[in-house]
Each structure stands twice: as structure tokens, then as C-alpha cells.
């Protein structure tokens, strides 16, 4: 009852506030004409008494119960979905970890001047020293491709080490080439095909090309 008094008071207050604005005084009645006023009266007049019957009360109760059931079911379904999603995520977690490994090789640097000679000398000493044609063929290509390098260590054979180091810095396979100058005398056996042409004094340039 208190509530009803409160709402009635609110309604009455709103109406009074509206009437304070009055016809032509507020934004509701601004510019209103006779038709609009009669339309408002007609809408109020058209109201017919509609008592709140027992069937309405029962329907409301049933509606509240149904909505409560729907809410409960929705909440339960949400919980089940959340748990299922969590479980699925945990189940798929290790697979996702293994699949995430990179399978492709690392990209090689594209700035090397000639990758062909760098690969072939690395293969030739390791695979078989008895395959001089493979080393000689890149040697010839190196000569043609990088004449500037062959020109720099044009001095004594000791410059071979310097050129070898330079080659190690710029090219990938340092192992094969590094052993050549570091081993010194041993390279004679390891790089037999390489050292064979080294017998003439003018040939170290080709050796450098092979290592470089």
C-alpha cells in the first residue's frame, strides 16, 4: 500500500509537473493544436476498466516460473560450455605445442656474393679428396666471378691465410677453408687436389678462390 501511495504520488507529481508546463507552456504542448488535444482526450477516454483477475495472476506466476527455469537452464548450459571449452583447450594444448615447431630451414643470407663456390669446396674436402674435378670446377668459377679477391692476396703464399680468414668472414663454410690455412702442412694431405696445383708459385690465387 505504501508502494501504491508512492507511485501515485510520483504519477501525480509528474502530471502536476506536466500541467505546470501547461498547454502551450512546455515542450509537449508547444505548437499543439485542437486536434492533438482532442487526440489526447480520446486516448484517455478510450480506457476501459480491466480488472486484474485470477487468471492473470496465474499466468504471471507461470511466466515467472518458466522464466526462472529458462534462466537456470541457460546458466547451467553456460557452465557446461565453459567447462567443455576449458577441457578442450587443455586437451589440445600439447598438440598445439608440438605442431608449433618450425619445420622449414632457416633462411640463408642472400648477400653472399657466390654461394656456389662456398658449398662445393666444403663438400670436396670432406667427401673425398680424390675428387679434384669438383674442386677445380668451382675454382675456375671463382676465378671468373671474383677477380678482386684473387688480386688482393697476390703476394706470397702466406697471404693465403689472410685470404682464408677473409673468406671465412664473408662465406659460410669456414671449417673446410679454415683447416686449410691452419693445418698448414696437413692441408697438403687434406687438400691434396688443392695443393697439387699449388706447386707452381702462380697458383695460390686459384687456391684462394677455391677456399674463398
Amino acid at each position: 500500500m505504501d508502494r501504491m501511495d508512492h507511485t501515485d504520488h510520483l504519477d501525480h507529481g509528474a502530471r502536476m509537473d506536466h500541467e505546470d508546463r501547461g498547454p502551450g507552456g512546455g515542450d509537449r504542448w508547444d505548437g499543439s493544436d485542437a486536434f492533438e488535444r482532442q487526440l489526447a482526450q480520446l486516448m484517455h477516454r478510450a480506457q476501459q476498466p480491466a480488472p486484474f483477475e485470477a487468471r492473470h495472476r496465474e499466468a504471471l506466476r507461470a511466466g515467472v516460473r518458466a522464466r526462472r527455469r529458462v534462466r537456470t537452464a541457460r546458466r547451467a548450459a553456460g557452465s557446461v560450455l565453459a567447462v567443455a571449452g576449458l577441457g578442450l583447450g587443455l586437451f589440445l594444448w600439447p598438440h598445439g605445442h608440438t605442431d608449433g615447431r618450425p619445420t622449414a630451414p632457416h633462411p640463408r643470407p642472400m648477400i653472399s656474393p657466390s654461394p656456389a663456390p662456398s658449398t662445393s669446396p666444403s663438400q670436396s674436402p670432406t667427401e673425398s679428396p680424390s675428387a679434384p674435378p669438383s674442386t677445380t670446377s668451382p675454382a675456375t668459377t671463382t676465378n671468373s666471378s671474383a677477380p678482386a679477391r684473387t688480386r688482393t692476396p697476390s703476394g706470397p703464399p702466406t697471404a693465403t691465410a689472410g685470404t682464408a680468414h677473409g673468406a671465412t668472414a664473408s662465406y659460410r663454410p669456414p671449417s673446410a677453408t679454415a683447416t686449410a690455412p691452419a693445418a698448414g702442412g696437413t692441408t697438403a694431405a687434406a687438400t691434396a687436389p688443392v695443393s697439387e696445383p699449388a706447386e707452381p708459385s702462380g697458383e695460390p690465387s686459384s687456391t684462394i678462390g677455391a677456399t674463398g
Partner: peptide, 20 residues
């Protein structure tokens, strides 16, 4: 109880509003 009292008191007005 409060809810029922409100609904019973305002049913007629609210039903007319819904009908319009």
C-alpha cells in the same frame, strides 16, 4: 506482496497502454 499490489493497482492503466 508488494509486487502483487503494484500489478493489481496498475493493471488497468498498463493494459490500456499495451492495447494502444
Amino acid at each position: 506482496g508488494e509486487y502483487d499490489a503494484f500489478v493489481a493497482a496498475r493493471w488497468s492503466v498498463l493494459f490500456h497502454l499495451a492495447r494502444l
